[in-house]
Structure formats: C-alpha cells, structure tokens
Amino acid sequence: MSWIFFRRAAQLLAGLFCYGFSIGMMIRAGLGVSPWDVLGQGTSLQTGIAFGLVTNLIGLAVLLLWIPLRQKPGPGTVLNVLLVGPSAEVGLAVVSEPSGIWGQILLFTAGLVLLAVATGLYIGARMGPGPRDGAVRTGIEVSVLAAGWALGGTVGLGTVAFALLIGPMVNRTMPFFHIPVRTASAP
C-alpha cells in the first residue's frame, strides 16, 4: 500500500473525529444544532439513550435506506456511522457550557468552523460520503428537524446559522483537503 492510502485513511479518521467533536461543541453552545443533531437530541431525551449512540443508530438507519437506492457505501461511510457518535460524546465530555451569550456564540462559531474543516477532511479523503450526505437533503432535513424539535431537540439561531453557512463553508474547505485521483496513464 502506498503512503497516499495512509494519508487518505488518516485524513478520514481525523475528519470523522473532528466532525463528532464539533457536534459536541455546538450542543454545549446551546444555540441550536443541525437538523440531524436536533433529531438525535430529541431522540436521546425521549429514550434516555446517550446522544452518541443515538447518532450512530440514526446513521445506521439512514445507511440501510441506501439499499433500495442501490447506492454503495465506501469504507468512510461505514466509519462515519461508527465514529461520529463516540467523538461527539468526547466533545460533550470535555467541553463545558459557556457562560454568557458571547461565550455561546464563540463556542458555536468554533464548532461550525471545525465541522466545515472536518467535512472537507473526510469527504476529501475520497473513501465514501457520510450516510446523510447522499440523500435529497433539504426536504429530508426539514422533516428531520421538525421531528427532532417535536421530540425536544434544541432549535435556535444556531440551527439557522448552520443551515445558511455550512454549505458555503464546506465548499471552501473541500478543495483544500481534496486528495486527487491518480490514474494509470495509457501506453
């Protein structure tokens, strides 16, 4: 195996860890989170199951929905399902809730920036998208958001900021972390 494979694997793992950790940061900020995390929070509140495990279970459920679509997951897709939840729990364990609105805004902003970088890392590794990355996003995420809010998940200005900013931010980070495909040249 070449060093490029190891670089891709390391970049994927770093991206997935940072992705989950950033979710923990945004939850601790208390200003609202992404639609999928609102669903995870609400489900966790209603069931008593830890947020990280709920995140893994939701990722697995979404991945199973790929079967009828005949969409094939990559190793990064499977690792996303397994690793984002535990790394979110690490973030929740080590990041404390800030005092005051400016602390909340700073923590949320840092979490959002880290999430954009993390997304660029794991998608740029080209080992498969996350299970939630492939679907018709807007309609599904509005439904997920409504369900999570009904279950008690946190919806707020952070949720709006996430919806408006994450796309443009990820569009900036993905080219930076993209590992190009090398093809064999024809004789």
Rank of each mutant, 00 (worst) to 15 (best):
Q71W: 14
V78L: 15
K72W: 13
G85W: 01
L53S: 12
V94K: 09
A110V: 12
R137M: 09
M127G: 02
E89G: 05
I105K: 02
G76D: 08
K72S: 12
G42N: 00
S96H: 13
L92I: 11
I58P: 02
L115M: 15
M127F: 14
R132T: 13
Q41F: 05
L82M: 13
V117D: 05
Q71E: 14
L112V: 10
I58C: 07
V94P: 08
L45T: 04
P131H: 08
A110Q: 04
S44M: 06
G59A: 13
G40I: 07
L65S: 12
G91T: 04
L106M: 15
G91E: 00
V84N: 00
L57K: 01
T119L: 11
L107G: 01
N80C: 12
L79G: 01
T43F: 11
R132M: 14
L60N: 01
L114Q: 05
I58F: 11
A50V: 06
Y122D: 03
G85D: 03
L45C: 01
L114C: 13
L65N: 03
Y122P: 05
G40W: 01
E89N: 12
A50G: 14
P129T: 14
R70H: 15
Q104G: 11
R126Y: 09
G128M: 06
I105E: 07
L92F: 09
A50E: 12
W102E: 12
G128T: 10
P68K: 09
L92M: 14
R70K: 15
G120K: 00
A110I: 04
L79V: 08
V117M: 13
M127S: 06
G85F: 03
S96F: 10
L115T: 04
G48V: 02
L45I: 11
I49W: 07
V90K: 06
L63N: 07
I58E: 02
L114G: 09
A88D: 01
I67W: 14
T55S: 13
F108T: 05
G52N: 02
Q41S: 10
V78G: 04
D133R: 02
